[in-house]
Amino acid sequence: MYEPSIIGFLCNWCSYRGADTAGMARMKYPPNVKIIRVPCSGRISPELVLRTFREGADGVMVLGCHIGDCHYSTGNHRTAKRMPVLKKLLEYTGIDPERLVINWVSAAEGEKFSIVIKDFTEKIRALPPFVETMK
C-alpha cells in the first residue's frame, strides 16, 4: 500500500512543543509526517512549501501558535495571511490545495496535534501519490 511522505513545518514554541506533549502522553499517530522545527510559522516562505512539493512530498503541514499566542506576538499573523494565498496559487498551478494544511496547535494541545496528524495523513493517503499527479 502507498504510504504518503509528509513534511511538517512546526514552530518551536507552540506546535513543536505540542508534538512533544503528544509524545509525553504516548499518543499514537501515523509515522508519515517528518517534523522540521522552525522558530516561527512566519518563517515559512511560500517558496519553502513549493520546494518541498518539488522534492516529491505528498503533503505539507504548517503548524503555528494560536492567533494571539505567538511567541513573537504577530509572526503567525503573516502565516494566517500568507498560506491561504499560497493555497490559491497551488490550485492555479494544478496542485491540489488540500495537500497543504495550516493549523494552530498550542504547547498544551498534544491530543489536538495527534488528531491533526491522523486526519491529514488519512486525507493525503486517499489522494494519489503527488509525483503521479504531476506527470
Partner: peptide, 11 residues
Amino acid sequence: CKGCGTCVGTC
C-alpha cells in the same frame, strides 16, 4: 531581533 524569521518569509 528575536530571530522569528517572519521577515525572511516575507522578503
